[in-house]
């Protein structure tokens, strides 16, 4: 009854937009008794497939923790693999409740979705190149072919500011292959992923040639205006931080201990 009056009011003032309709995503989740999360499956250490083919990673642990807080069990979760180029559309179209998929906070994205609290401060992009490469400054890549991934938030900066000839692939596998084939002089991507790559046996003769120029906060994403859900998720993340869970997951997935996470754990724990 009250709900329908509310809707009528919203509609009459012209405020009944998509965001108002999905304001009760949290109710839907509870009714369904399952949290549908978009995650990466090709992005170690955040979300990737282990040797048994299971999706694991830092953000998977976080997603499970949020499911436990919202629904009482970390089993009440459906992990949907997404890639950078489709995750926002999947979320906006209602196929997902929330995304924990290495989502960098940016103003352009903030216009179409809402971010949860920022649980990681990740290094921005760096460039992976053969050990012998002498191109150590970003400016030196001007006019040269550089491999990348379609949908990375820094792609425009690479072509417009650094003047790179960016060759953007649909997935990482193809980009790595093209780098090995020397189709590009380097590959521009998220620094942590590239660093982990250099530890793999076939990639030992590659190095991080250009260092990251920025550190970017990462957060989860919910639909625009999904405030109730956002607050519930923020509360859960905050609790996990206070319990030192994020530091545990960092260690579990071989991530270098970050000051940002330690700092947030301390603040959350003190409250």
């Amino acid at each position: 009854m009250f709900k329908s009056i509310g809707f009528a009011l919203l509609a009459s003032t012209g405020l009944l937009t998509a965001s108002a309709v999905c304001a009760d995503t949290l109710d839907t989740i509870k009714e369904r008794d399952k949290l549908v999360v978009g995650v990466k499956t090709d992005y170690a250490p955040y979300g990737y497939l282990n040797d048994d083919g299971e999706i694991v990673g830092f953000e998977i642990e976080l997603a499970k923790y949020v499911a436990k807080e919202l629904l009482g069990s970390e089993e009440k979760i459906e992990l949907v693999p997404v890639v950078a180029s489709n995750r926002i559309d999947f979320l906006a179209s209602g196929r997902l409740d929330v995304i924990f998929a290495t989502l960098g906070i940016s103003a352009a994205r903030d216009e179409v979705i809402d971010f949860t609290t920022q649980y990681v401060s990740a290094a921005g992009p760096s460039i992976l190149a053969p050990e012998a490469s002498k191109l150590t400054e970003w400016e030196q890549y001007e006019g040269r072919p550089v491999c990348g991934i379609q949908g990375s938030y820094f792609n425009k900066k690479m072509t417009e500011e650094f003047g790179m000839n960016l060759i953007a692939f649909k997935s990482q596998t193809e980009a790595y292959r093209a780098l090995k084939d020397n189709r590009c002089v380097g590959m521009v991507f998220d620094d942590m992923t590239l660093r982990l790559k250099t530890l793999e046996p076939e990639w030992t003769d590659y190095k991080i040639a250009a260092q990251p120029y920025e550190f970017a906060p990462m957060g989860g994403g919910v639909r625009e205006g999904d405030t109730v859900l956002k607050e519930a998720i923020d509360k859960a993340i905050h609790k996990a931080e206070g319990e030192g869970k994020l530091i545990e997951w960092e260690a579990e997935f071989n991530m270098p201990a970050s000051e940002y996470i330690a700092e947030r754990a301390k603040t959350a724990g003190a409250e």
Binding site: A108, V112, S152, N155, K156, I167, A178
Partner: peptide, 22 residues
């Protein structure tokens, strides 16, 4: 576009991945 030939579809992808106006 899948093998990164910078034709219309490739740049369409580049643009909507940048501004989300799919």
């Amino acid at each position: 576009s899948v093998i990164t030939v910078p034709e219309l579809m490739y740049y369409a992808g580049q643009i909507y991945n940048d501004n989300f106006r799919t």
